[in-house]
Simulated scan of single mutants.
Amino acid sequence: MNSLKPYYPVFKFVATFGVLYLALSLAYYAYLQVEYSPVNYPDPVTALVSNQTKTGLQWLGYDAQIYNAPSNPSVVLYIDEKVVYRVIEGCNAVSVMLLFAAFVIAFAKAWKTTILYLLFGIVTIYIVNLLRLIGLGYVFQEFSSYKEIAHDIAFPAVIYGYVILLWIYWIRKPKVDDGKAN
């Protein structure tokens, strides 16, 4: 048993991460089970991301519109009255944010720093995801022959790559204990 002692921090991290991710995922699952209004369909975060994606595409000069798809829990994005893609719950990046948060909390030392980093990370993940959705709309509209590569490979690499960079920074940054150096 003593031979495992050097690995206790790793076991602690994995256990903490696993429990946190499970708890956050169950809370998110409960959130998704609520019946939301037609305005916030399929859920408020997906509705917000869809609306902001539409606005971003409109800023780029596209005639973008969104409509709820009650038969399928999603929001359909149209450009020039043509379906471009559906925004489903998985497109809102909440599950990516939960994964990020569980990792950061599992590596936490100072709560003030951790909370600030969580806020920074979640806000910037949201922004990166929004830019991802706007970029997908652009690619789907202008370069439709690349839509599978963009959707399945390039843009997931962007958002997950960004999260990995955030994690690397979190692990390697100088640890500060609420204003006191370790």
Rank of each mutant, 00 (worst) to 15 (best):
M1K: 09
S3K: 14
K5D: 07
K5P: 05
F11P: 05
A15H: 02
A15V: 12
T16S: 13
F17D: 00
G18Q: 00
V19P: 01
L24A: 07
L26Q: 10
A30E: 10
E35P: 01
Y36N: 08
N40P: 00
Y41E: 07
P42I: 08
P42W: 04
P42N: 08
T46Q: 05
L48S: 12
T53M: 09
K54D: 02
T55V: 14
T55E: 15
L57D: 09
L57Y: 07
Q58G: 02
Q58A: 02
L60A: 10
Y62G: 07
A64I: 02
A64E: 05
I66N: 08
Y67W: 11
Y67T: 13
N72H: 14
V76D: 11
I79E: 11
D80K: 02
D80F: 02
K82N: 12
V83G: 00
R86H: 15
V87L: 15
V94M: 12
L98S: 00
L99M: 10
A102E: 02
F103S: 06
F103M: 04
V104K: 09
F107M: 13
W111H: 02
T114H: 05
T114W: 08
I115L: 15
I115D: 09
G121N: 05
I122D: 08
I122E: 10
I122G: 04
T124D: 01
I127V: 15
N129V: 08
G137P: 01
Y138A: 07
V139H: 07
Q141A: 12
Q141K: 13
S144G: 11
K147Q: 14
I149A: 15
H151L: 08
I153C: 10
F155H: 04
A157G: 11
Y162T: 00
V163M: 09
I164C: 06
W167K: 03
K173R: 14
K175Y: 03
D177I: 13
A181L: 14
